[in-house]
Design a protein around this nucleic acid. Structure first.
Lengths: 114, 114
DNA sequence: ATACGATATGCTAAAAAAAGCATATTGTCA
DNA sequence: TGACAATATGCTTTTTTTAGCATATCGTAT
C-alpha cells in the first residue's frame, strides 16, 4: 500500500491554492498567457481563467497581471507578489510531500499491514 | 492563511482508508455496532456500511467482524487484523498532520505572504 | 476600418460523489 | 411463532464538481 497526500492553502476557511494550480500559474508566467497555459494542461481557457480569478479573490491580492488587446491579443504573467507567493507555496508543498513519503517509509518498514 | 492536508492509504491505485473513516471504524469497535457508529457520526447506516465494505474489498482482508440476528439484532466489531491496521493508520495520519503543521509554522514565520 | 488573438464572463450540460429511501434477512427471546 | 434490532443491498435523488458552449471586449498591425 502507498500513502497519498494532498495539501492546500486556505484563507478564512476558503481554499486558495493547491498543488495542481501552482503548476498552472507557473505555466502562465513561463508561457506569457493563460490560453497557452491552459492548452498545456489540457484544460479549457474558461476553466483556467475561472480558477485564477478565484485564487486571486481568496488570496486577497493580484497574482496574475493581464493585458488585453494588442498585436497578440493580449497576454498574462505573474505579478511580483504573485510570483513570490506561488514560488513559496510550491516549495512548501513539495517539501511536505517529501516529508510525508519519508515518514511513511519509516513506519511501513515495521508493519506488514502497511 | 493556514495549511490544510489530507492523507489516505491506497492499494493498487484505489483509495483504501482516509482520515474520516479511521474514526468511524474506531467507533464501530467501541460501540459494538455499525448502526451506533453511524448514528454517532450523523451518517446513515447505509452509507457507513457501504464505506466499510469498500474499505475491506480494497484492503484485501476482513476488517469488521459482523454477526447478525440474535437478541440485539446483531452487532459488529473489528477483527484483530482490522484493529491493528486501523490503529496504525490512525497513528500515522495524526503523526503526519502534526509534522505538516509544524513545518508550515516554520516556513510561514519567514514569509509575510503565508 | 477591419481582422486577429487573447482576455473576460454568463449560462448550460455532463460526470462524480454523497445522501436518502425502501426492503429483505437473520437469530434470540418472550 | 411473532416481535425486535441490526446486518445486508438495490435503487433513486440530490448535491457538488468539472467541463463545455457562446459571446462580448480590447488594442495593435495591416
Amino acid at each position: 500500500m502507498e500513502i497519498k497526500a494532498k495539501f492546500w492553502i486556505e484563507n478564512k476557511g476558503e481554499v486558495v491554492l493547491g498543488g495542481g494550480k501552482t503548476a498552472l500559474l507557473g505555466a502562465v508566467d513561463r508561457l506569457g498567457s493563460i490560453q497557452a497555459a491552459a492548452d498545456e494542461f489540457g484544460m479549457s481557457y474558461r476553466h483556467a481563467w475561472g480558477a485564477i480569478k478565484k485564487i486571486e479573490q481568496r488570496a486577497g491580492f493580484k497574482i496574475v497581471d493581464t493585458k488585453l488587446g494588442g498585436k497578440e491579443g493580449g497576454g498574462a504573467r505573474l505579478t511580483q507578489q504573485g510570483k513570490a507567493f506561488v514560488d513559496r507555496v510550491d516549495s512548501l508543498l513539495s517539501d511536505l510531500s517529501r516529508m510525508v513519503e519519508k515518514r511513511f517509509k519509516q513506519k511501513s518498514g515495521k508493519c506488514s499491514l502497511l
